[in-house]
Design a protein around this nucleic acid. Structure first.
Lengths: 253, 253
DNA sequence: ACACCATTGTGTGATTGTGACACAATGATA
DNA sequence: TATCATTGTGTCACAATCACACAATGGTGT
């Protein structure tokens, strides 16, 4: 109970430093084990999960708020970030109901009646992330996107809209490299594409996929090969950001 | 001076009914004379132009706010509307400077220090719009997108981002029909595509363009032909929303 | 009334891009 | 050292896109 009071106090303090009705929600995507993952938090003393997020401070750039929140949850500084939608239905949630689900006294409801939330999705390298909780939560971990549970607020909507936005952009921009380690094999890249586009394994033809990827000219083949697998060692590749910028300049203008 | 005081009073009242830091800006596109147009407003007693917009009321859905603002400026109810970005840099404008440019006393600055604005673009049929001013403005008219003047706040950024978003979506969705009258000729449709995609006239091959458009199956050729031109009368076509929905279902899932 | 002319309606062949497909080389494993 | 799943690589068929020409038409101007 004492802890609860502390938490409520911290929330109130935070709220006073923030813009009040305006918050950010982040959908953090990672790729591991041929699966697309999302980072979720579980509230203290509750079995309800939610997206990482927070209020925007009064003096803060929108993007800085998103980076701040992501740094707190993942430990990472440099993250690919994309704003995808702003959610502002006036019935996004019921504050008292949420309080109850969080195991908090509804009469201390601290949620503003009307809240607008700006949605960002982030692409991170799975292995670099060290999920961290904050003062309101006691668990932070990756979930398979196909197994996301029922979330608090309208976070299921937000997550599915983020996925849709990711898929759409994925067709037109080379975003995948943000989800892979610096060195990767072409088959890993192919699995990533298949996973994100929702295709079954080997739906994409290996030869055609590799031909196409290499034809863009922004992948650099390293001398090094990946060893440790039980089979012929594949070449490693690197995504060359400068060549990608050149490619974009040629093909967009 | 008396009028100024009235205006400031109205602004204050509006602000109190709204969420304060949160506003909407609308980039309204129309098509006329083979040109893409944007609706702009000129502030009272000033030669500075800006986008239509307004604060979001405390009880309002985001989209409803956008529709309300559009109805007030254009007289139209049913409008194609698309949220495209939320602007929240903490230096989006300097309130006192804006007051000066509006010919208002800077010490009565009513702009919040920090404002977040949600950007929507709208596609409307040019001929149906009757541009209307509000209590803060004395002129509302169409501008050619290629001749947009320097705007107040960060509205030039917002407008150019809207155009970029429009072009991007235009490639993948049949949005153009929102900008045309119900009945149109294929050459009018072609000019629209050329204009929005920034191509010169007749860059698209007439036969190939028409073949492709008709192949989608959501255009219906009417018996009627368009007369009045000085030449052979072209067929009129209609965009069939139901057939378009069917087309989408087949090609997206 | 008639000739004029810009514009419409329509099909085919050339080019390019995409999708299907097979086999020899390799590197761990047993 | 044999095994075996996996890698690396090129060609052909098909589909999509692009380039292109000519007869019909409906106002315009005389």
């Amino acid at each position: 109970m004492e802890e609860l009071i502390t938490v409520l106090g911290e929330i109130k303090a935070l709220f006073n430093r923030s813009l009040g009705e305006l918050s950010i929600d982040c959908v953090v995507f990672g790729f591991h084990d041929d699966q697309l993952k999302v980072l979720l938090l579980r509230a203290k003393g509750s079995d309800s999960w939610m997206l990482p997020g927070g209020w925007i401070l009064k003096t803060e750039h929108l993007e800085d708020a998103a980076y701040r929140i992501l740094k707190e949850r993942t430990g990472l500084d440099s993250i690919f970030l994309q704003q995808f939608y702003t959610f502002g239905a006036n019935n996004r949630y019921n504050g008292k109901e949420i309080m109850a689900r969080l195991g908090m006294p509804p009469e201390h409801n601290f949620f503003p009646e009307r809240a607008v939330s700006i949605g960002y999705y982030a692409l991170v390298e799975y292995s670099l992330v060290e999920p961290k909780t904050d003062f309101m939560t006691e668990e932070c971990r990756w979930w398979d996107v196909s197994e996301i549970p029922e979330l608090l607020f309208d976070h299921n909507d937000i997550a599915s809209r983020a996925l849709k936005a990711l898929r759409k952009q994925f067709d037109h921009e080379a975003l995948g490299f943000n989800l892979l380690p610096e060195k990767f094999t072409l088959i890993e890249l192919q699995r990533l594409y298949e996973t994100i586009l929702g295709l079954e394994k080997d739906k994409l033809d290996r030869r055609n996929f590799q031909k196409k990827m290499l034809s863009y000219g922004f992948l650099e083949r390293l001398e090094e090969r990946k060893t440790g697998g039980a089979h012929k060692a594949p070449y490693l590749y690197r995504f060359d950001l400068e060549k990608y910028a050149a490619y974009q300049r040629e093909n967009e203008l």
